[in-house]
Simulated assay, not measured.
Amino acid sequence: MEEVGLVDDHITFLALLYACGHSGLINEGKCYLETMTSEYGLELWPKHYACVVDLLSHSDRTEKVYKFIKPLPVEPTAAVWCALLGACRVHLNPKLGKVAAEKLLELEPENHGNYVLVSNIFASMGKWKDVEMVRTRMQERGLRKDPACSWIEVGNKVHGFVARDTSHADSVAIYTTLA
């Protein structure tokens, strides 16, 4: 971009940090972060912080990531807590995972997807009391998980399916085959 005269901006660095995080390029991401702030004088947006947390979460240092989050100059977003929560699942840190889950649900109490995510993460850690607590909170708020759905195209016709749905004309044959 520099060779053709384009100026790197917030969006450029957001894309770079995102790519580094999803590729596990921790050191490269840290370099881009340093370049963004020191050479370009750009201040981080909340989305940059979420990318940095995701980037750092690929290391097995969830406590270090949490120490990065605590003094942020902006209020950490749900995306930041979601990234830390995912890292806690991968790196088996249920204590910090519970903190991240609480923060996530506190920030977006009406987002049913977060409750499902938190419940699934607690289940993967074998924290069944926490799973029950999250599901109870979800029910108390009147939130429901959307049923799973999928589509398949057969002979130029698209067929849609929802979990436990029997309205499809061939549902008996389909469920018999699955069984």
Rank of each mutant, 00 (worst) to 15 (best):
T35C: 12
T35D: 14
T35P: 00
M36C: 10
M36Q: 10
T37W: 04
S38L: 12
S38K: 15
S38C: 06
L42Q: 08
E43N: 10
E43F: 04
L44T: 11
L44F: 08
W45R: 11
P46L: 14
P46K: 13
K47F: 06
K47P: 01
H48V: 12
Y49G: 06
A50G: 12
A50V: 11
C51P: 05
C51N: 08
V52T: 11
V52M: 14
V52K: 00
V52D: 04
V53N: 04
V53Y: 03
D54W: 09
D54I: 07
D54V: 05
L55V: 11
S57L: 03
S57A: 14
H58K: 15
H58E: 09
H58M: 12
S59G: 14
S59R: 13
D60C: 10
R61H: 08
T62S: 07
T62V: 11
E63Q: 11
E63K: 13
K64I: 14
K64A: 15
V65N: 02
V65G: 03
Y66A: 09
Y66S: 03
Y66W: 12
K67C: 12
K67S: 15
I69Y: 03
K70Q: 13
K70V: 15
K70W: 02
K70I: 15
P71F: 08
P71M: 09
P71C: 08
L72Q: 06
P73R: 09
V74E: 13
V74Q: 08
E75M: 03
E75S: 04
E75I: 00
E75H: 06
T77C: 00
T77Y: 00
A79K: 08
A79I: 02
A79S: 06
A79R: 03
A79N: 02
